[in-house]
Nucleic acid binder design. Structure first.
Lengths: 214, 214
DNA sequence: CGGAGTTTTGATCGAGCTCAACGTGGGTGG
DNA sequence: CCACCCACGTTGAGCTCGATCAAAACTCCG
């Protein structure tokens, strides 16, 4: 993958942690617990403190489209509009801080930086959606590699990446079948580019992976 | 297509026209003229007054990804960051108003509504990118139908839609080949669901089209 | 431990790509 | 203004990548 395509990681959460923390308490969500449903009121958006989130849309014929995964330190649920466009749920037990949208956007809020904060998060979300689009135009092999590279970058550029989501989640995110995802991962492992563990993948040959994404 | 999926059209430009008009003059761009290049400084974003715009990214191997089309009344070039993520050019002769980003986001600007305006546009852009993602997960036939429905909705819900872009543009937007786009359009025409004219398509059987997008 | 959910692997099928040839129309120069 | 010409669009035949169908192996909770 073209490195300039990948997403620079995010907004500095830590520096805002304190002020955000004052607004509302965080709570734990169990595995497969819904944070918000499709079409629900979008009065809140969320900061994931720990765990893993999937945001998805269910089509009328039952097909499922995974719009995004969120990892600790990232925001989710800010898709604009007054209704959530997708549903979100915890992939594993997750600690989540709910933030009232109005506290940032209400015209009574004198602090312009709060609004700017929302804008930055939305813009980052847009960038991610565009990167996702780019993935979906490519071959199965490239999609899988691009997905791993993105996950690596967002997980502090680690080569040892955590993938608690199922193959079905990955397949629905990449627009492939679980069999194809499994085969592509298998192929990458057979060429020693990666090493597959249970819910974890180790990137062994970054140069090869980067080359494949070209 | 699931109607709730489609994008409600935009921000009320007219009501802001006057104040925007004061900021900067608009100018005409010729067919195929570049408005801004990939990686160029994103000091400005743009309002399309008339014409048609394509925004695209060229991959290292020469493949091209069309990120979006813009029609009159829509904004473009607000992908976040200080650099443009894609390039934009006029598909036909187009009248474009350039808006300095800083006039909206600078902390010296006392008016919070300006910032909110930028946020709304960015959020709408995000919504569009998400809809585009949804298209890319579907079959060739569904992508073409979804594209036509989106264009119809954005063009005042008209059944007579203007498509000045080439088949190559549409193909690169939908992740298909020009042959497949041509065949899918042909198939829709043969079932009398649409009527193809040169750079124009008339939607004849909305019920059928909506059904196909299911 | 038991059993359902998940992942891998294999065999076959088909939607969409590729390659090729032909048709068409609008822009440009004479 | 017209005719040429080249970019654009359509149509056909065969092939390939990823989907589908099937079944075995694993693993993780309960």
């Amino acid at each position: 993958m073209d490195t300039q395509v990948r997403i620079q990681s995010a907004i500095d959460v830590e520096s805002n942690e304190k002020s955000l923390g004052q607004m509302s308490g965080s709570r734990w969500f169990l595995r497969k617990e819904e944070v918000y449903g499709e079409g629900a009121s979008a009065a809140y958006f969320y900061l994931l403190k720990s765990g893993f989130i999937r945001s998805f849309k269910t089509l009328s014929d039952g097909r499922r489209h995974v719009q995004s995964f969120s990892i600790p330190g990232e925001f989710f649920g800010l898709e604009s509009g007054d209704r959530h466009f997708v549903a979100s749920e915890a992939i594993i037990r997750s600690k989540i801080l709910a933030l009232p949208r109005s506290a940032f956007t209400a015209s009574s809020v004198p602090d312009q930086s709060a609004l700017k904060y929302i804008l930055d998060i939305t813009a980052l979300e847009l960038r991610r959606a565009q990167y996702h689009n780019l993935l979906l135009l490519r071959s199965a092999q490239e999609r899988v590699v691009g997905f791993l590279l993105d996950m690596s970058e967002r997980q502090q550029n680690s080569f040892d990446i955590s993938l608690p989501m199922t193959r079905t989640d990955i397949a629905d995110y990449l627009g492939l079948t679980i069999e194809t995802v499994s085969r592509m991962l298998g192929k990458l492992e057979s060429m020693s580019a990666i090493e597959i563990q249970r819910r974890r993948v180790i990137l062994r040959k970054m140069a090869v992976l980067l080359e494949m994404f070209a």
